[in-house]
């Protein structure tokens, strides 16, 4: 067991050391070129300064990460809970496929972020407008992929199910849901990547807390070092969400993951 883990670690290092070396070079170059080109503090800082300066502002950064994280997760979870059932309903209802589906496809063309100022003006500076904007950003990729997922059962599996005489509900539970899961996760992962973008932009537009608000304020105060700290935490938030989704995917459809590797 231990030997196996060690072996995997060694292989991982031998496969990815170049990537790490590249990252290291990038940051070293950044560190040196600030002095070399005499870049002023209010334009850009060295990576080392960014770390030490932001450590001083850590409590505020943590609190804002929590707030932005809450907005992101709430919008994302509500989007999943609504988009999947709506996707299923559209797949199986002829009426919805002719009405709601084209409507959703047209709304998908609209950049959802453009609604952000309106929602802020309607609902104020609080949590709700941000959650709604994150929801809008996440909802469409999930619902469109769910429609694709539930609508593309292979002809063989469809016929196989029919010939058994099983009820539609049984076929749905035993065949349709598991076949649809991989494609559903494609949409959910795409949404996870974009969720933090939605939250940050919503906060840029109208907010008195959160990482988006923070980045905007410190930039105004000519503190690019702190802006970078905010950007870093925002990235971490996005990665965390994506990581959780990937983990859940692994739990729910291990057969799909292992197939992909092979």
């Amino acid at each position: 067991m231990k030997g196996k883990v060690l072996k995997r670690l060694v292989r991982w290092i031998s496969e990815s050391w170049m990537m790490f070396a590249f990252f290291a070079c990038f940051f070293l170059l950044w560190e040196w070129s600030i002095d070399w080109f005499e870049v002023p503090q209010y334009i850009l800082n060295k990576p080392s300064e960014i770390i030490t300066n932001s450590a001083a502002d850590l409590p505020r950064l943590m609190q804002y990460t929590y707030i932005t994280g809450l907005e992101t997760v709430l919008g994302f979870v509500v989007a999943i809970c609504l988009a999947i059932p709506i996707g299923v309903a559209i797949t199986f209802s002829n009426i919805l496929r002719r009405t709601l589906y084209p409507f959703l496809v047209s709304v998908e063309m609209v950049p959802k972020i453009a609604f952000a100022p309106l929602f802020i003006s309607w609902l104020g500076f609080g949590l709700l407008p941000k959650v709604i904007i994150v929801f809008l950003v996440c909802f469409f990729p999930i619902v469109l992929n769910a429609i694709l997922a539930f609508g593309s059962l292979s002809q063989e599996l469809d016929r196989f199910s029919q010939i058994t005489g099983a009820s539609q509900i049984k076929i749905f539970l035993k065949i349709r849901i598991p076949s649809a899961l991989p494609q559903c996760f494609v949409g959910i992962k795409y949404a996870a990547i974009n969720a933090t973008v939605g939250a940050a932009i919503a906060e840029f537009i109208g907010s008195d807390q959160g990482l988006g608000f923070y980045i905007q304020i410190v930039t105004g105060n000519m503190r690019p070092d702190l802006a970078f700290a905010g950007i870093f935490l925002l990235t971490l938030l996005g990665l965390g969400l994506f990581g959780i989704v990937t983990f859940v995917e692994r739990l729910m459809i291990p057969w799909h993951i292992s197939q992909r590797r092979g």
Binding site: E156, R159, F160, W255
Partner: peptide, 16 residues
């Protein structure tokens, strides 16, 4: 569709 028969389809019906 008749359920009193057995069918092996041309494409696989093994679910992954």
């Amino acid at each position: 569709p008749r359920n009193d028969i057995g069918v092996m389809f041309q494409e696989s019906t093994l679910v992954p």
